[in-house]
């Protein structure tokens, strides 16, 4: 067990690598109840989210979800989050590590007509892998196979979304906290392998997904970390949507440093903070692991714009050859 954003969480339940393979090849599950769930309702909810979220929720249909970022005035990323369009408003699921910052940010920008409801009464389980949908159906009787990616459905007060953080198919279920233990048990009986934070990190990195606080933070605009696509600038003929950070981001559409993947061609493991030398200059590893699926070390790294081809990574006293790639490192099974 390790401390994580005020929670005590399992790094693994036995073997991190075995848990990783279970998700890639079968089905694994994660207790992600540390994720922050905030419901947003009221007459001002739509305008509020169109202001604090760089993606545009206006075009989001009920039962659909959108991944994106919350920016500060300098266009730095306060957090990344998924926004779900519910029947009477929205549900925002944000990271645990930034939860206090996100909460106070949202409170500060909410109008009198916006109701923020942090949900401490819910638990969240992620069931992920090529067999996740079958396993979830067997455990709960709920069939998510007809849900498109980034869609969700309600089953009474339980929310089942076709989302995840592993690059695999699967669902994330947000349920009343008192039901979590029995749901976990039923999923175990249906064949899901419990997986910890360690496997969650190696899975998301193979899939090329950023982790806030490592690959991005309040000093990086989304355009510098491969998330420019999540920003909705709007059509040329539409009124300009004044989301927070927009003006600063306009000036940072082509930042000097960008996030790229690095594949290690020699032996060793890249770790956060290691220096990367490229033809265009120095960069730094923001997340690095030994990839259980690929059998070598992969990393996300902040590198000079335009870097490509060969590079070398300083691993303690050795300089090890690597190659710059565009994430994801792994094609998903979907």
């Amino acid at each position: 067990m390790v401390p994580f954003a005020g929670w005590s969480m399992p790094l693994h339940y036995g073997s991190q690598i075995a848990e990783h393979h279970a998700v890639r090849q079968g089905v694994g599950m994660f207790d992600v109840s540390h994720m922050r769930v905030i419901d947003v309702a009221g007459a001002g909810a739509n305008d509020f989210l169109r202001t604090v979220f760089a993606g545009d929720v206006a075009s989001l249909a009920r039962g659909r979800a959108l991944y994106g970022v919350l920016l500060n005035e300098n266009a730095g990323i306060i957090d990344d989050a998924i926004v779900y369009r519910t029947d009477d408003g929205f549900r925002v699921v944000a990271n645990a590590g930034t939860s206090e910052r996100v909460r106070s940010w949202l409170v500060r920008h909410a109008s009198d007509e916006t109701l923020l409801h942090p949900r401490q009464d819910l638990a969240m389980l992620a069931v992920q892998g090529p067999k996740a949908i079958d396993c979830f159906r067997e455990a709960t009787g709920l069939d998510a196979s007809a849900l498109p990616r980034f869609a969700f459905a309600w089953h009474e007060e339980r929310m089942v979304a076709r989302t995840g953080y592993t690059g695999e198919d699967g669902v994330e279920a947000i349920v009343p906290a008192e039901e979590a233990a029995s749901l976990w048990r039923r999923l175990t009986e249906a064949g899901a392998t419990p997986a910890g934070l360690g496997a969650r990190d190696t899975l998301r990195l193979e899939a090329g997904l950023n982790l806030h606080g490592h690959d991005m933070d309040e000093s990086t605009p989304p355009t510098a970390v491969g998330l420019g696509w999540t920003v909705a600038w709007g059509e040329d003929d539409a009124p300009v949507r004044r989301f927070i950070g927009r003006d600063a981001l306009e000036r940072q559409r082509r930042p000097e440093q960008v996030l790229r993947g690095v594949v290690l061609e020699g032996r060793g493991v890249m770790r956060e903070g290691f220096a990367v030398a490229t033809e265009r200059g120095e960069g730094v590893v923001t997340s690095g692991i030994f990839s259980p699926t690929l059998g070598y070390s992969i990393a996300l790294a902040r590198l000079p714009r335009g870097s490509k081809g060969a590079c070398s990574v300083q691993i303690r006293s050795r300089s090890v050859p690597g190659r710059i790639v565009r994430p994801p490192f792994l094609r998903s099974n979907e």
Binding site: L11, G198, V269, F290, R316
Partner: peptide, 30 residues
């Protein structure tokens, strides 16, 4: 935790008691 890489000393290398002679990398750390 799971060990993913081991860096060993070379044969005939002189090593000192208490001095570094290799590296072991796990999923967590070196």
């Amino acid at each position: 935790g799971d060990i993913v890489y081991v860096e060993l000393p070379d044969e005939e290398q002189q090593v000192e008691a208490g001095a570094e002679a290799g590296v072991v990398e796990s999923v967590k750390a070196a």
